[in-house]
């Protein structure tokens, strides 16, 4: 389980997160939606300490820390319980697909090489890339790269996987393969927090949808509630703008 209380983050004079609470139970798939600049990506990056939040606390598993006071050791402990899938994939360019997936296991967690390789091959198989183990990122399509990115996160077997707009850098025809891998992951009851604009994914897979705007959570609930019976005017406005495009895919 992961719990965040009252997280604040400012960039310069720009208040990006103004006290957000987030609680995710084990096996839950939480989808965060909202207009750009609403702070959803920053929230994910703060959870993984890629940004240092100004205030608030986080607990993951047995670790409880205040964002500001977290020591290097605590940061490392939290990072080991979380994994991130990036918008731009961010695969290690100097390593093969297999090397990418093994890196966290071997170097960070000191898992013996043989064991790590077996695990890594298994997850690459799971995302349908068993035959691409030896390919370098430059030899893979965007969709394939992102599937390796998901495999890299899965291999670490973290408490939660954070997805930061995993399909928004992809060509439209490649979105499907990544979404179906994500759906397969969700069905295995792996805890996921997903920032995305893919409403069909949210509707089909999410246990809960959170709508963020202006650095706060405006509304949250089951996907049908949020999408079909939104209570807040701001949510309705956002959906009016975004849903016509996705009508076809629902």
């Amino acid at each position: 389980m992961i719990e965040i209380r009252d997280i604040h983050k400012t960039f310069g004079h720009n208040l990006v997160l103004k006290g957000v609470d987030l609680k995710v139970d084990k096996g839950e798939v939480v989808v965060i939606v909202g207009p750009s600049g609403s702070g959803k990506t920053t929230l994910l990056r703060c959870i993984n300490f890629l940004e240092r939040a100004d205030a608030g606390e986080i607990s993951i598993g047995d670790t409880h820390v205040a964002f500001r006071q977290a020591t290097a050791r605590q940061v490392s402990t939290i990072r080991k319980q979380t994994a991130m899938v990036f918008q731009n994939y961010n695969l290690f360019n100097n390593m093969t697909a297999l090397g990418n997936v093994m890196e966290g296991l071997v170097t960070a967690r000191k898992v013996p090489k043989k064991e790590a390789e077996a695990v890594s091959r298994a997850v690459l198989d799971q995302v349908g890339l068993a035959d691409k183990c030896d390919a370098y990122p430059s030899q893979l399509s965007g969709g394939q790269q992102q599937r390796v990115g998901i495999a890299r996160a899965l291999a670490l077997n973290p408490e939660v996987i954070l997805f930061d707009e995993p399909t928004s850098a992809l060509d439209p025809e490649l979105v499907g393969e990544v979404l179906s891998v994500m759906k397969a992951v969700a069905r295995k009851h792996i805890t996921m927090v997903v920032v995305t604009h893919e409403m069909s994914f949210a509707l089909e897979i999410a246990s809960r949808v959170i709508f963020m705007d202006g650095g706060v959570v405006v509304e949250e609930g089951a996907p049908q509630e949020i999408f079909l019976r939104p209570k807040e005017e701001r949510t309705r406005q956002f959906l009016r703008r975004i849903l016509p495009e996705t009508d076809y895919t629902i």
Binding site: R79, K80, A83, M84, F86, F92, G104, T107, L156
Partner: peptide
């Protein structure tokens, strides 16, 4: 992104 990905897998 390379730095971030490395930190995110715990390096």
């Amino acid at each position: 992104g390379q730095y971030e990905a490395a930190y995110s897998v715990g390096l």
